[in-house]
Design a protein around this nucleic acid. Structure first.
Length: 273
DNA sequence: GCCAACGTAGAT
DNA sequence: ATCTACGTTGGC
């Protein structure tokens, strides 16, 4: 929001911003951390492919934090970090539940569990999962959790090869992974209202699904300007075909199997009915 | 099955 | 209010 970077709506502006592109392009991410595509205004005044390719690659973007958060000070006082993390968690939970069809990303879910003192629900081994906080719960309070929540890494789990969370606590849906109701109750988080709503919404399929933000099309930042969707955007109201999320291409009722991190099978996980 | 157009939910 | 884009529908 505030001073969104590189939204220059005019072509000449874009030209100028192109000259500024040597400074890292700040990713705009939506509430759930998904890259918010530069489509908005720039779409009307398309850049050349070269301009885009010269911009930050997804990998560089992935290293960026939530733009709304300041970069960490060189020597952060510990209590402040913890407070910030807690505040961030609150905000994140609210936003996630409210915005992302209520889906909880793993990192977020893990953070919630930890915050609720439910870290025992996490399976041991694998470096304690989120944030790779190998030394255990003692450093949960600080940056590792916050990083995991706000962090742009699609899924930080599995670094050590194993999935660090108890699968029974999560439900896989085509739209993503979210905490099972039981997990929320166990964690004392059942008060958050969106959970049941989201479940019914998912089941009924009435809610608009959102792009996963992780598949290759989602990671694309350019509109090809040549496909039918781009050419007919005025009437078609469709996203560029090359940017259409793979998950959204699937039928909601079908393919409940979710591939984690680009194709890893979901394995023995629960499926949403 | 593919495509275009429309209605509209959700975000800004 | 405006914009983007998902879901649906109808034509081919």
């Amino acid at each position: 929001m505030s001073g969104g970077p590189s939204e220059g709506g005019r072509a000449d502006e874009l030209e100028r911003s192109g000259a500024r592109q040597d400074s890292p392009v700040v990713e705009r991410r939506n509430r759930s951390g998904i890259i918010s595509q530069p489509l908005n205004k720039s779409l009307k005044h398309s850049r050349t492919l070269l301009q885009y390719t010269a911009a930050a690659p997804p990998a560089a973007a992935a290293n960026k934090r939530d733009p709304s958060t300041k970069p960490p000070p060189p020597a952060p006082p510990a209590p402040t970090v913890a407070a910030l993390a807690a505040a961030k968690l609150d905000r994140t939970l609210e936003q996630v539940l409210e915005g992302q069809n209520g889906l909880l990303h793993f990192a977020q879910a893990a953070a919630l569990l930890k915050r609720a003192g439910m870290e025992h629900m996490l399976l041991p081994g694998g470096g304690m999962g989120v944030g790779d906080a190998g030394s255990g719960a003692s450093d949960l309070e600080g940056t590792s959790v916050a990083d995991a929540v706000g962090g742009p890494l699609d899924f930080p789990y599995g670094v050590g090869g194993g999935f660090p969370f108890n699968p029974g606590l999560f439900i896989m849906t085509p739209a993503g992974v979210f905490l099972a109701d039981s997990a929320l109750h166990m964690a004392g988080l059942a008060e958050y209202p969106a959970q049941s709503e989201l479940a019914s919404a998912i089941n009924s399929g009435k809610k608009k699904r959102k792009r996963c933000g992780m598949c290759e099309p989602c990671r694309r930042r350019i509109n090809c300007e040549q496909c039918s969707s781009c050419r007919n955007r005025k009437t078609g109201h469709q996203i560029c075909k090359f940017r259409k999320c793979d998950e959204l291409k699937k039928k909601p009722s079908g393919a409940l199997e979710v591939s984690l991190e680009g194709g890893r099978p979901a394995g023995r996980w629960l499926k949403a009915s």
